[in-house]
Design a protein around this nucleic acid. Structure first.
Lengths: 212, 212
DNA sequence: GCGAGGAAGTGGACAGTGACAACATTGAGT
DNA sequence: ACTCAATGTTGTCACTGTCCACTTCCTCGC
């Protein structure tokens, strides 16, 4: 058999198996030996493709980030409104719901996405890059959020003076909400209360960004 | 020697050593065998006092929560203002700064406080308990926050209709901010930007709770 | 006094893990 | 056809959490 010894494309197969383990059991469930077992390969095989368990985890993390971004974009696309300012505000809320929804429906992937050490993001907070004056790279979930916020400013729904740092503010709010309800102290609250509280959070943030 | 075999009060000593390890290396640094080593006791000794590593971790978690609460109370106490509504708003901001400040200055303890599985909190969201009509138990950091929010309502700084869920909103905002800047994607942002952004977050939340 | 009984601590063992080193297999390029 | 480097494998080590049987020592009833 030619396919017995050499797997062919092990690396993506390992990442996929690791992602499945992450979905099911969270970051601690991604055990190198189990990943190899499920891929039908002996342990240590992964070391030809990843320097470290951490490196495999990081790959799964970017995969999770991609899915999160996809979920956010999908939810945003379904919104319609003829008033531009209202539209942008509805989009911001929906981005928040998508973020929390992803975290709660895919807790394992969400945890891995933020548990990996090497998951740093390019934050364009320093306005030193003269190129691309508007609409930053839109890479990743952070970029999607940034675009929606830019949209709000452009539509007049939010003062431009508040644009700086607004990404982190929104991100922190929904991230904290998700974490507290996931493996945090609020994890056994009934879903009904959780959803109502999320709307209250979105209300508060929106009022804080838009209002006087 | 009478003190050679029996330690005397091992349990608190173990908790203290575990807390020190947690401070230095985070949750994963709290290794049962290392805790025992540093306490001058053989491994397995801890099993007479804790069913599980998790149980020891939980103890450290409550210790961390206590310190967090103490830090919040200390920071609140230092505020003076003769206008009650402004005072309550300043207190809310200071609670947020204390929370983030603790997380960033004691990352290990902060992580342990929320990494432990068994760290659930009594959330008085269900208004079914007829006793103690106002001002809930004020136990833990959550209680301190709740008291300040009650104060805001009493001082007329915040509409009473927004009181429900406001605790979770504030908590989520600062918790997310702390987590993202701690072991999250924003962990290598310069402190200056971080602080400015935190003020922006506090502005937004305050405006969202107070404003029209 | 004193001796039994249980609490507190010890040493050994086991399965599981991540990581390293040496060896085996195979396909690609000459 | 022959090399050779990439890819997988087996073997091993240190470390961890947890269980087990054993030892030491304090306490309490007599």
């Amino acid at each position: 058999m030619s396919s017995s010894y050499h797997h062919g494309n092990l690396r993506p197969a390992l990442v996929l198996a690791a992602a499945e383990l992450a979905r099911a059991k969270g970051p601690d469930g991604v055990v190198l030996r189990e990943v190899a077992r499920q891929t039908g390969v002996s342990h240590n095989a992964a070391y030809r493709h990843f320097a470290d368990r951490e490196e495999l985890l990081a790959e799964v993390a970017t995969l999770a980030m991609d899915r999160l971004e996809a979920a956010m974009l999908a939810r945003i696309a379904g919104i319609e409104c003829d008033q531009p300012d209202l539209l942008s505000r509805l989009r911001l809320r929906e981005v928040g719901r998508a973020y929390v929804g992803f975290a709660l429906s895919e807790p394992g992937l969400f945890e891995v996405a933020f548990a990996a050490q090497t998951a740093h993001v390019d934050v364009p907070d320093c306005p030193e890059s003269p190129a691309s004056p508007e609409s930053s790279d839109s890479s990743g979930p952070y970029g999607v959020l940034g675009d929606v916020l830019d949209e709000m400013v452009a539509a007049g729904a939010m003062p431009a003076a508040r644009r700086d740092g607004a990404d982190v503010v929104c991100w922190a709010a929904v991230h904290g909400f998700a974490v507290l309800h996931l493996h945090g102290p609020l994890s056994d609250l009934p879903a009904e209360i959780r959803d109502v509280t999320l709307e209250a959070l979105l209300d508060t943030v929106e009022r804080g960004l838009v209002g006087a």
